[in-house]
Each structure stands twice: as structure tokens, then as C-alpha cells.
Write a protein that binds this DNA or RNA. Structure first.
Length: 310
DNA sequence: CAAGTGCCTTTATC
DNA sequence: AGATAAAGGCACT
């Protein structure tokens, strides 16, 4: 197996652990110093020393693109660095990058992620892949590729539910059928505007604004997308409350999930305030807030869960 | 350790 | 339009 090395420097900050632990992706697993990931139809492994990225079983172009290494992170930082809160998050998690995920997998992942915690999402996707994905052997271990849209489209709702999807099974089934039957083009959405992409995505069953924004940001290269989950809602209402009417802040703080209209107000604030790279601001704030609010929990998210072996 | 709470929400209904 | 409830079941406290 040939091993490839990418050199990193201060013009290209990158932190592999932050990037893979921050909850944007669910199919990576750390063994010793190596991260093993199932990406597309293949498995590859990668590790980082201070200024080198070393990987096996993939090529440089793919790795650079997948990890977003071509993005000018220093420029992104200077664009979003608007106040002390985001500055703090950037200092703490510098090198966290937004991945360029496969849109199909990303879409199903975030449909599954609704109202679930990250370890549970990992379990669901692992079970789905074991049941419907191709078995891959790598480094004497077994892995399972993410199922093709055809496989999930042909699966029964009952079979999907058995993977722990619960009521999400019917959404995954419905969306898989639409993607497979209608010859849905993610490539068109990648080229389209963020507005257009989210308009199309929310037509799919199980996809609301939050899921559409996550898919746009993590797989369709819409770096201005600003997904509003429970954590980001808290952040915005805590640090940026003066951008909203007092009544509105009170109301939104009192309940856990925002209405559609409230979601749009919060998300639009993020896009306008942080600009074209608002999605990066969102990830840094999300990560920083989680790390701060729940230290013990965060240790767990950051550490590897042995049960989560892929 | 058991029971309660919360979960990177969406949809259906009123 | 806006509020409210229901929806698996797992993970964590």
C-alpha cells in the first residue's frame, strides 16, 4: 500500500481531529493514531503530525478536496472574525474544516440526525451500511460502504426501521425513492445557488430547513448556509440577541425548536452578519459552544467510542 | 442502577 | 400565520 504525505503550513491550517470529531460527519473512526474513514465506495486511513498529513489508499487530489484543503482558511477567518465570540471559537478550534461530503450520504445522514444525538446517528448509519452496503476489507478489518440510493429505495420501511431509524424510516425510504427514480441531480444543486438548492431539498420527505442547510453546507459547497440547530439557536440568542426584538428573543428562548419563520430569521441573521462564509462561523460557534457547555460530554464526543467501531 | 431527560427536527393538525 | 403535539429509541445523567 502506498503512503502519501501532504505538507501543511501556517498558510494552510488544518486539524484532523477537530474536523472529524465535530459532528459534521459520522463515518470516521480512530484506531491508534490513524483515522479510518469510509468515503464513497472506499475506505482510507489518514493521520496527522504537526505539519504533515499522511494517508493510505487514496490520492492527493481527492484528499485535498474532501478535507477542504484548497479553501483559503486564513481568508475565511478574516471574513467571519466579527466579534469576540467568534474570535474565541476560531482561536480554540483553528484548523477545523468543513468537509466536502458525498451529497447522497450527507442527505440520508442528516435525515437520520433529526432529533437524535451524534452517537445514536452513528449507530443508525453503521447498521444501515451493514445491512445494505458493500462489505470492504481493509487492514484486515471489515467495513461497509454507504448503501446506494437504489438499495435504500428498494428496502422496505420495516427493514429500514430495524436499523434503529424509528419514524425516520419512512422518510429515508421516500427520499431514497425520489433520488433513485427521479434521477435527482445533486450535481445540478451543487452548481445552483444556495436558495435554489434548499428549495429543492425541502421538497424531499423528512427534509426541513435545518437538514437542507446542513446538506447545502456539508456537501453542496454552499459556505454561506447557516444551519440552526438547538446549539446554534442558544448561541445566537445568548451572544447576538441585540439583533432581534426583545419579545422575539424571549419567545424563542422559551421553547426548544424554532418555528419555520423563526428559523429563517435566525439563519438569515447568520448569513448577513458573517457573510459568504457564514457556514464556517456556524461550525466554529457550534463546536465552541458544545465544548464549553458540557465538558464531560464533549470529552466523550472527542474521544473514540469503542462501540462505534466501523 | 433505574427512571427521567434530551436529542444538530419534521410533519400533521388545528 | 402560528401554536401544539406526536413521533423510535438510544445515550447520558
Amino acid at each position: 500500500m502506498d503512503c502519501v504525505i501532504i505538507r501543511l503550513d501556517s498558510s494552510c491550517p488544518f486539524n484532523l481531529d477537530f474536523t472529524l470529531c465535530c459532528g459534521q460527519v459520522f463515518r470516521w473512526d480512530k484506531r491508534g493514531t490513524w483515522w479510518y474513514g469510509i468515503v464513497g465506495e472506499d475506505v482510507f486511513k489518514i493521520r496527522q503530525t504537526d505539519n504533515e498529513l499522511e494517508f493510505e489508499n487514496n490520492d492527493v487530489d481527492f484528499v485535498r478536496h474532501y478535507f477542504g484543503l484548497s479553501e483559503d482558511l486564513p481568508k475565511i477567518f478574516s471574513t467571519i472574525r466579527k466579534d469576540k465570540h467568534i474570535k474565541h471559537a476560531i482561536e480554540k478550534f483553528a484548523g477545523l474544516r468543513i468537509l466536502h461530503q458525498n451529497p447522497w450520504e450527507c442527505l440520508i445522514s442528516y435525515i437520520c440526525a433529526t432529533y437524535k444525538n451524534i452517537p445514536a446517528v452513528k449507530q443508525m448509519l453503521l447498521k444501515l451500511s451493514r445491512k445494505f452496503g458493500r462489505k470492504i476489507t481493509f487492514d484486515k478489518r471489515y467495513f461497509y460502504a454507504f448503501p446506494a440510493s437504489q438499495s435504500l429505495a428498494k428496502a422496505s420501511v420495516k427493514e429500514l426501521a430495524e436499523c434503529g431509524l424509528g419514524y425516520r424510516a419512512k422518510y429515508v425510504s421516500g427520499t431514497a425513492k425520489r433520488i433513485y427514480d427521479d434521477d435527482f441531480s445533486f450535481e445540478d444543486l451543487r452548481k445552483a445557488s444556495h436558495e435554489k438548492a434548499r428549495r429543492e431539498l425541502v421538497n424531499l420527505p423528512g427534509v426541513g430547513l435545518k437538514v437542507a442547510d446542513c446538506v447545502s453546507l456539508f456537501s453542496l459547497e454552499k459556505l454561506e448556509a447557516f444551519p440552526i440547530d438547538i446549539w446554534i439557536k442558544r448561541v445566537v440568542l445568548k451572544y447576538y440577541a441585540n439583533n432581534f426584538p426583545t419579545e422575539s428573543v424571549k419567545k424563542m428562548s422559551s421553547k426548544k425548536s424554532p418555528s419555520k419563520a423563526e428559523y429563517e430569521r435566525l439563519s438569515l441573521f447568520g448569513r448577513k452578519y458573517f457573510g459568504e462564509y457564514a457556514g464556517y462561523a456556524q461550525e466554529y460557534l457550534y463546536h465552541s459552544e458544545r465544548a464549553e457547555t458540557s465538558n464531560p460530554k464533549m470529552q466523550k464526543t472527542f474521544k473514540l467510542n469503542p462501540k462505534n467501531s466501523i
